[in-house]
Every structure is written in structure tokens, then in C-alpha cells.
Design a protein around this nucleic acid. Sequence first.
DNA 1: CAAAACATGTAAGTAGTTACATGATTAT
DNA 2: ATAATCATGTAACTACTTACATGTTTTG
Lengths: 179, 179
Amino acid sequence: MSTPHAILIALLEKPSSGYDLARRFDRAIGYFWRATHQQIYRELGRMVETGWVAVVDDDADATRRKVYRVLRAGRNEVARWVRETPLGVDDRNAFLLKLRADAAIGPLGVGGELVRLIGEHRARLNTYREIEQRDFSGRASTDARQLQYAILRAGIMQEQMWLDWAREVAPLLGVRADR
Amino acid sequence: MSTPHAILIALLEKPSSGYDLARRFDRAIGYFWRATHQQIYRELGRMVETGWVAVVDDDADATRRKVYRVLRAGRNEVARWVRETPLGVDDRNAFLLKLRADAAIGPLGVGGELVRLIGEHRARLNTYREIEQRDFSGRASTDARQLQYAILRAGIMQEQMWLDWAREVAPLLGVRADR
DNA sequence: CAAAACATGTAAGTAGTTACATGATTAT
DNA sequence: ATAATCATGTAACTACTTACATGTTTTG
């Protein structure tokens, strides 16, 4: 959804070369956001053009290694993206990305969005529960039917988990998860 | 990851027109797998070429509406894909897709893959727990640090949830979630 | 000195998104 | 009749993936 912003935020946390970024996107970051080295180099090139990042003139070390840092315009762009890009319930990872941005250059007012998302997740959970009541409340079930129920259970458990998590996070963002 | 297979499986569950599929992918199916009508029509066209699906000659009803059904080759392709395409821990939705295929034309032996995935999810959960111990066991935390911990918590809770779910599903697939 | 890891890129192909386009049927 | 919904498609653009390509530095 937003590879350039993922890269900007990673660079805000620590200025890096394309190669370093590729490694970071394979380890810690990669657990929730992926990018190949081709994507990274392409985006870095574009963002230099745009003026969001610049190569740190590695004074002494005149090797071929290029370390990038985020410029003021890039920082502003991250803040703008966090504030003005509404996410949906399916953009879990993008929301975590916003939290990382908030940790790096915050506060950026992510609390409001968390509250909205809690509402949307609750609505979806209710939808799932209604389907559960309607289609899976009876007794005897065929194998196929039990599998279909398992798929729905995955959705239900996922929403419950997200809401549990949101309840933990809300106070950190200065909002209430009310009820 | 595999739009054509998602469409084939939806068609196995119920022969439909492109328009119907688009609606189904917006409702129930859309909660875990998305496809726009352009993708759907394009894939349907391709799959007719390949011989995986065919238009049901809507005898009487000679309107412009085209209902597609899955041919034997398409069915075989689904079975092949389910059996021969190993998924990673991040392909949650693709695994649910396999369960739907198994419910529709199973059994396809998905149990083995579930067992493998349980192992991989446990490994990832352990990695997260180690990071937790190493980086977040101390007391006093800054705001930024607490947010970083919240991101890690999301990962931990997600893995725990998946493992809980897998424990429910295992018996349906004839395998044990052992321990 | 050879292999592994470092480091950055181009090119081609595939998939996905967004915008445009058209016409038929159904309901008000 | 006119608006909404049904129904199917093309075209252009953007993003992503996979393969190719090249040279450097470090380590055994």
C-alpha cells in the first residue's frame, strides 16, 4: 500500500544504505512489511528526485556505499501521510507502520484513527457473529460444514484479538477504548 | 498470490457469472480475499482459454449474462495447487482458501501443511518472545519505547491467536496439534 | 586466492489499479 | 421516462516479481 512511506519511516529510525534497508526489511521489519532490494533502490532513486531523502556525503569513506537520510520534506510527507490517509480494517500493517512513525517523530495524533478502527472492527465482528448464529448454530454438521465454520472462526478470532490489542494500545495514544 | 485459484474455488462452490463473482468477492469472500471486477473478467477469459472453466450454455436465457462452471481440468488444477504450493506463515488467507477448496472438493490432505505451519508459527512466536525478553523486560519506558513494544505485542498476539485457531482446526483435518 | 558477503543497479514480464465505455433490464 | 442496477468489457498506468548483470570488500 505504501512502500515509499515504509522506507521513509525505516530511514527516520536509522539512516541506512539500500543494502542495509534490504536486510532490515528481511529481519525485524520484514515480519510485518516486505520489500525486495529492487523496490528499495527504485524508491530511493525516486525519493531523491522528489527531495524526500538525500545521500549522506560520506566524507572520508568514498566507497560506493550510499547512506540515505530523510530530508525535512520527507519528514513532512510522513506526517502528512499518517494524518491524511485513512486506513481500513484490512490495513493492519499500515496501522502498525503509523505507530512506528509516531514513535519516531510523533506525536502525530493517531489516537483518533484507532478509535474509528475499533468501531469498524466491532462492526465486522458483529457481522461475523450474525453469520455464526444464522449458519452455524445447529447441531449435526458435515465435514465440509465444519471446515466452513473453521474459516469463519478464523475471522472471529482475528477480530477479537485485534480488539484486545487495541485496548492495550489506546492509553498509549491518549484515547479510551470505552467499554 | 493466487487470484485464479480463488476464483476457481468460488466457482466450485457455486457456478456464477463474472458479475456474481464480483459481488461475492465484495461480501463474504471479500472479508479475506479481494478481487475487482476487472481482475475477475480478465482471469475468467484466461481460464476459458486454458480450458479450466467454460460458459454454461444458458439454453433458454439467451441474454448477455455468462455463467461459468469449472471443468475437470480446472478442478484438477485446484487440487494440484492445494497439494503442491507450500505456503508461508504470512499466507494466512491462502491457507483459508485451501480449506475452502478442501470443503468443496476435498479431502485434499491439507493436514500435513497445517502441522508444518504450526511449527513455523511456533518458531516465529519464539523469536518474538526473545525480542520481548531482550528489549522490553526492563521497567521505565519512554512513550516511543512503549509504542515499539505495542507493535511487537501485535505480532505476539497474532501468532498466539493463529496457534489457538490451528488447535481447533487440526482435528477436522485428521491431525494432532500435539502439545 | 577463492568463496562469501557486500553493494547497487537494469530489464523484462506479470499482476493489480483506475479510468473509461457501453448497453440491457428492472423498478419507480 | 428516468434512474438504479445489472452486466461485460477495453485501455492506460502503476507496482511488483524474477532474472540478469557487475564489481568490491572481507574472511578463511
